[in-house]
């Protein structure tokens, strides 16, 4: 299904951010992407804050997946 495809792709992209495989992304992981992605520190911080729905400082796979689904215009829950 499309939902499964989105989750599969999300898993790949999530792993690019969560290099140690912790199971979550924190702000340090996000900062490390600066230099790898054409986004500024501030933009990466904003992206993190906007994906971190509950604002607890940990970006879970579910939150990431939701954000990616939103980017694709899908409602993945």
């Amino acid at each position: 299904s499309i939902e499964e495809m989105v989750k599969e792709k999300s898993r790949e992209l999530f792993a690019l951010c969560d290099k140690e495989g912790k199971g979550f992304i924190n702000k340090v992981d996000m900062q490390r992407l600066h230099g790898e992605l054409p986004l500024s520190d501030e933009q990466l911080r904003d992206v993190f804050d906007s994906l971190d729905n509950d604002g607890n400082g940990f970006l879970t796979f579910e939150e990431f997946c939701e954000g990616f689904g939103g980017f694709l215009g899908l409602n993945v829950s």
Binding site: L13, L37, P38, L39, Q43, V47, L51, G70, F71
Partner: peptide, 29 residues
């Protein structure tokens, strides 16, 4: 005063930029 719809749109653009960059990064990285 802040234009909420504009802020939402720019936020969306920023996320799109982020996910696009990640998608482009995938091969070879």
């Amino acid at each position: 005063k802040p234009d909420v719809s504009k802020t939402g749109a720019s936020n969306e653009r920023m996320l799109a930029n982020f996910f696009n960059s990640l998608l482009n990064k995938k091969p070879g990285s």
